[in-house]
Structures are given as C-alpha cells and as structure tokens.
C-alpha cells in the first residue's frame, strides 16, 4: 500500500472534519476522494501532504511513518485548486523550483524542466509569467512543478474546480492519459461524481468525516454500500419503497410476467437522445425512468397510457420468456 491513513481524526473547534478514518490507497493507482463540500476529503488530502496535522491517527507513505514529518520531508507533489503559481517566477522557474531547492546541477534541471514542459504542452510558454497563462495552462504548469521532484505520491486538491466546464473536461481526459504514461500514485479530491467515475481507478466516498465506501467506479455506482453513496453517485428514483437508478427500470405498455408494477404514464420529456418518463403507480409513487430514444420508440410509449414497470434486475428473465 502506498498511502495508509489509520484512525485519522481531525476537528476544527466543534466541527468534526474527519472521524476515525482508515483508508489504504494502493501504489500506482489513480484514486478519487469523492464527497460533498465540507465532508472532510480535502482535509484528509492535506493531512497526507503534511499541510494540516491530524488530532490523532497516523499516516504512512510508501511504508514510512510520516505523521510527524514536515511537508518538505514527505516527498509528495501537491496541486492546489487555485494553482498556487509562484507569481514572480517564469513558467520554467516555477517548474524548476523543487529541483533548485534540492540543489541539482543546472544542466540536469534545465533538461528536466524541458522534458516536463513538453509533457504538459507548455514548451512555448517557458519564459512567460503565470499571469500570462489561462487557468488550464496554469494548472498544467502546477502539475509539471509537482512532478519535477519525482514525488512518490501526487496529491491534487479539486484540481479542476476553478476551471470552466470545457477546459475541465479536456484536463480530466488529459490527466487520465498522463497517469497511464507516468503511473505515479495519484490521489485527487473532487465533489463531481462524473469526474471521479470517468478518471479514477478507485473511488473513496467520504461524507461527514467518514468513509462511506471504497471501490472501483463500477462497484460504487452499481453496488452502493448505502443510500448516501447511491444518491451521491448518480440519479435515483423510488420504486416499491427502495432507491433505484432511473435507467435501471424498463417500461412496457402491456402486462408482463413477474413482479411488475402497474401505473399511468403522466409525462414524457425528450432531451436530445434521452427520454425521461414519469409514471404514477397505483401505490402513489412518482417513478422517474430514463430511456434512450430508440428504446422508448420501440416500446411505443404515450402520455396517459397504462404501463407496467420492472427494474432491470427483474427484466432479464422477462425478456428471455419472449413477452417483451
């Protein structure tokens, strides 16, 4: 295990930011700490980096007990939400900073900076000042700066939070590709479940200072440990009193075998290729269903119809009997 946090607790006054948190983050993976704002995920990341200290508990990095090491002795790379660019230094000087502190030879530093600027596609901006870069470019510079010291772990605190949607998406894809090229153990904090699902190998869901679930994106999405994880990771609707994903429900305009629920189709919204149907069941539930356009057309759905709905887990045997 590359990073191991054991029984970490942190309070700010009366506020409990982390409540006895224990997590193992494996070497070489890209892990997302996912959760709502104020849930404690950034605090955990800062404690791993040594920028905050835990009230109790320990942090191990690459097998070394790091709880009492200052940040400069932990060999971690840290990327901040608002870039933390050194404003009075050029892009190249920013990237070189960690190497200059380590008193590397000038020629080695120059070569490393050149290599990293190529990696983050900023070679032509080497002599610019950070104020002359866009947000996305500044964040790539910050990433190159953190990677320059060849950290054993790379920590990113809401790295794309301050960027607009388009740049955010590009950088997200780019981070995934970068990690595939340089598989340094990476942990990033995000409150955006789509970001976590798309980029991470593993997701740690954190809420109210506790770890709710640890798993692959598939696991946390499809086998959520509890209602919080279920509702935080994606849309939900209620059917027969339990939470279900709206796209895990199928709709039929004729009775089907098995435990189907009968209801009336009250609304049908078409959003591009998505179709969102609302069904009022006999039991008084308003169930939301997401279908593709093709699927909805096949079913021949219309507002006001009587329909029968089943969750996808129960749908498969129905399809096999040929009743669909």
């Amino acid at each position: 295990m590359s990073i191991r946090a054991t029984n970490v607790t942190k309070t700010f006054g009366d506020f409990v930011a982390l409540d006895d948190v224990t997590v193992d983050l494996p070497t070489g993976h890209l892990t997302a700490l996912l959760g709502p704002s104020g849930g404690g995920k950034s605090t955990l990341l800062r404690i791993i980096a040594g920028l905050d200290t835990a009230d109790s508990g320990t942090v191990e990095i690459e097998g070394v007990e790091a709880s009492h090491l200052p940040p400069q002795k932990r060999n971690v790379g840290f990327v901040f939400q608002h870039y933390a660019a050194f404003k009075h230094m050029s892009v190249a000087k920013n990237v070189a900073f960690g190497l200059e502190i380590r008193k590397r030879k000038k020629a080695d530093i120059d070569a490393k900076v050149k290599e990293l600027l190529e990696l983050v596609h900023l070679s032509q901006f080497a002599d610019r000042m950070p104020s002359q870069l866009s947000g996305g470019q500044r964040q790539r510079m910050a990433l190159a700066r953190a990677l320059a010291v060849e950290p054993s772990v790379l920590l990113l605190d809401e790295p794309f939070g301050a960027l607009d949607a388009q740049v955010r998406k590009e950088l997200r894809d780019w981070l995934r590709r970068l990690h595939d090229e340089i598989p340094v153990t990476t942990v990033f904090v995000t409150h955006d479940q789509e970001e976590a699902l798309e980029v991470a190998d593993e997701i740690v869901v954190i809420n109210h200072g506790r770890v709710e679930q640890v798993g692959t994106p598939d696991e946390v999405y499809h086998q959520p440990a509890n209602d919080f994880v279920m509702s935080f990771l994606g849309p939900t609707t209620t059917l027969n009193g339990s939470a279900v994903r709206p796209h895990d429900i199928d709709v039929f305009n004729q009775p089907v075998a098995g435990p189907a629920v009968e209801g009336t189709l009250t609304e049908l919204k078409r959003i591009g290729f998505d179709v969102r149907a609302t069904i009022d069941t006999a039991g008084g539930e308003h169930v939301t269903v997401h279908l593709t356009r093709t699927h909805a057309d096949e079913r021949g759905l219309d507002v006001g119809q009587r329909v029968w709905i089943v969750t996808s887990a129960e749908r498969r045997p129905v399809a096999q009997t040929g009743l669909a």
Partner: peptide
C-alpha cells in the same frame, strides 16, 4: 497573497 504559494513551496521541499 495568502498561504497557497508558501504551502506549495513547502510541499516542493523548501524549508
């Protein structure tokens, strides 16, 4: 200027 730049410097190994 805040403490972000100072924290970044610390994480990069500066005392």
């Amino acid at each position: 200027i805040g403490t972000d730049q100072e924290q970044a410097a610390r994480s990069l190994g500066a005392g």
